[in-house]
Write a protein that binds this DNA or RNA. Structure first.
Length: 593
RNA sequence: GACCCCGUAGCUCAGCCGGAUAGAGCAACUGCCUUCUAAGCAGUAGGUCGCAGGUUCGAAUCCUGCCGGGGUCGCCA
């Protein structure tokens, strides 16, 4: 139940009726909004409908206010409207009867799992099949904190979209082709020889981390000394495959520690494999070539700093400029092998062929320069049917009590994601990474996120949930026979909720469906985190009023019916906190210990 | 040189498909614990929304140009 949707529809109906009289043209209802007013004393809902359509209304309405007046008159006749007034240049401010908020609470209590879910067919952006590709860390070592941010972001976004009616696939693109997995293989090979008793030194350019030791040991166990005698061309594919498998297993474990699982793992290497003499990459390039979007040509040298080894040469190019990229992009390296971009084209073509309507790619900010060409490729490959939304996650700066944590990748002395999760816990790690817009840098303070105080938003929101549950326990202690089940509380006489603090809580609970929908449509999970923080704040505030005014406390030992009504309110609060935290992948504890 | 992101309170950031007096947390200051968990709450103070133009009835929000910070810039992934 979304009261904002409800009134959007009511206003749309009024506009249609006026249009039926010939006093307005057919209007695009998506242009106006119904939202909470800036100042809650103005009412419960506000709409800009009359102002947005001022131009269209001009022939029959001398001012936006005049149109607003007519809309208000019509709305005042509809259910649960206490008043509808025009304000300022033509705002429509609506005050609702408390009954509608009681209805909202009942909706939350009767179907806790689905409260806030976006109604089917509501928003066109929230339908169909969506592929969320995230993490896609190279399988060359353990995940670090930056990977973790993209991981948590992608996972929460997938949760949100699934909750909002999309059919969602979580996907991981394994970069298991190219030079760096060969480097991985050579590094693992050294560890293999080490496991056989050789003394090794790891040269510059190979991966020095200890995490390859078990891979070497496993290889030694499986192959004995047989690989030592083979030339690199023979051992490399064997070692590489084993090392990639081991790295992916490690990465999956790292992700599992954050409660993240992907439905699909897609191998880049598979795109390079020849089937009947043709790879998927060849096929994708041919497909584009048939559309006239691939040609042989020369690229101007990059401006600014010219690479040392720049050589002007003819190459295979994709006409990404036809899809508003800045230059056409190379598809083949100088040795004739496909570029990373060419593989990515084949990969995205595969996703499009699998029938997705929307593709979301979650990348690190250092890939920003890659967005335009990928968007161009998806537009070309799908004839502009499929939209690609690339979400760039900015860097995470790891801090400890205000001081940056020193990290040096060179010495292998960097803090892994796993270490962070083990230190602060899944809940804190996830919440803090989502309590920031994805394109803003994030300071992650290891000391602060485990602090149990209101300064820590994770704790603050979880504490609100625990506090709510505590109130339910207290109610049961006072009235051992009451039924705390949500569906029973839904039958409470909610007209007993008349205090302004109680109503304020009900009103913000009523905003949950709107917050979820907006977050999902914008692909911005952080909005849910901020909403929950605000909800918690309203709750803590009301709770504390009970200190000076005992009659406002949730449990009234001398008034069973009032207690049940208030407990119903608290229960719907925990429903919403639980629902929102679940979307973020953060637990909602019944008590804080 | 080009492209992308960012610039909002002392600090960290919300708000941005235009809407009413620009918000929160921290830090500062003042109050509230014989408690349904003070692990919290109430209040005070703090702003040329980087600068300058433009569009509009209306701009933190959209457009243009600057300034500052970060990122990226044939074959890396």
């Amino acid at each position: 139940m979304n009261i904002f949707d409800d009134f959007h529809a009511r206003i749309a109906a009024v506009l249609d009726r006026i249009a039926g009289d010939g006093r307005l043209p057919k209007l695009d209802h998506a242009r106006f909004v119904v939202e909470p007013p800036k100042d809650t004393t103005l009412g419960d809902l506000a709409s800009n409908a009359a102002m947005v359509f001022a131009k269209e209304a001009k022939p029959h309405f001398s001012s936006p206010r005049e149109l607003a007046v007519e809309i208000c008159h019509a709305l005042a006749e509809t259910e649960n409207v206490a008043s509808a007034e025009v304000a300022g240049p033509g705002f429509i401010n609506i005050r609702l009867k408390p009954k509608i908020f009681a209805d909202v609470l009942r909706a939350a209590l009767r179907d806790p799992a689905n409260f806030g879910r976006v109604a089917k067919g509501r928003a066109s952006a929230l339908q169909g099949k969506v592929n969320v590709e995230f993490v896609s860390a190279n399988p060359t070592g353990p995940m670090h904190v930056g990977h973790g941010r993209g991981a948590v972001f992608g996972d929460a976004l997938a949760n949100l979209l699934a909750f909002s009616g999309c059919e969602v696939t979580r996907e991981y693109y394994i970069n298991d082709a190219g030079a760096q997995v060969d480097v991985l293989a050579r590094s693992a090979y050294l560890r293999y020889r080490e496991a056989l008793g050789e003394a090794i030194t790891i040269p510059e350019g190979l991966y020095p981390g200890d995490y390859l030791k078990p891979v070497g040991a496993a290889l030694a166990k499986a192959h004995g000394k047989t690989l030592v005698e083979k030339p690199e061309s023979e051992w490399l594919p064997i070692v590489r495959a084993a090392a990639i498998d081991a790295m992916m297993e490690m990465i999956r474990d790292d992700l599992a520690a954050l409660n993240i699982t992907h439905e699909t793992f897609f191998s880049e290497r598979a795109l390079h494999e020849q089937k009947n003499g043709v790879s998927d990459i060849d096929a994708a390039i041919d497909w584009l070539r048939a559309k006239g979007l691939v040609y042989e040509g020369r690229l101007p040298p990059p401006k600014g700093q010219l690479p040392d080894d720049w050589e002007d040469r003819e190459q295979t190019l994709f006409r990404s400029t036809q899809f508003s990229d800045d230059v056409d992009r190379a598809l083949k390296k100088s040795d004739g092998s496909p570029t990373y971009f060419a593989a990515d084209i084949a990969y995205h073509k595969d996703k499009i062929d699998r029938g997705y309507d929307t593709l979301v790619d979650v990348w690190g900010a250092d890939h920003g320069g890659y967005v335009k060409r990928m968007a161009a490729a998806v537009a070309a490959l799908s004839d502009k049917r499929v939209t690609l939304d690339v979400k760039l996650c900015q860097l995470v700066k790891l801090m400890r009590a205000g001081e940056p944590v020193k990290m040096s990748k060179r010495s292998g002395d960097f803090v892994t994601l796993r270490e962070v999760v083990e230190e602060v816990g899944v809940d804190a790690a996830r919440f803090m990474m989502l309590y920031r817009k994805n394109d803003a840098p994030l300071d992650f303070d290891l000391a602060k996120v485990i602090e149990q105080s209101k300064d820590n938003p994770v704790f603050y929101v979880q504490y609100a949930h625990a506090r709510g549950k505590s109130a339910l326990r207290q109610a049961l202690a006072a009235f051992p026979d009451i039924d705390l089940a949500a569906e029973s509380l839904a039958e409470a006489d909610l007209s007993r909720l008349v205090d302004e603090g109680e109503l304020a809580l009900a009103k913000i609970i009523a905003q949950y469906p709107r917050a979820v929908e907006a977050a999902a449509a914008a692909h911005e999970p952080h909005r849910v985190a901020f909403y929950l923080h605000e909800l918690a704040s309203v709750f803590h505030s009301h709770w504390n009023r009970g200190k000076d005014q005992p009659q406002l406390r949730f449990v009234k030992a001398d008034d069973r019916q009032l207690t049940i009504a208030r407990i119903a309110l608290v229960s719907s609060l925990t429903v919403v906190l639980g629902s929102g935290l679940r979307l973020l992948g953060v637990s909602a504890p019944d008590e804080m210990r």
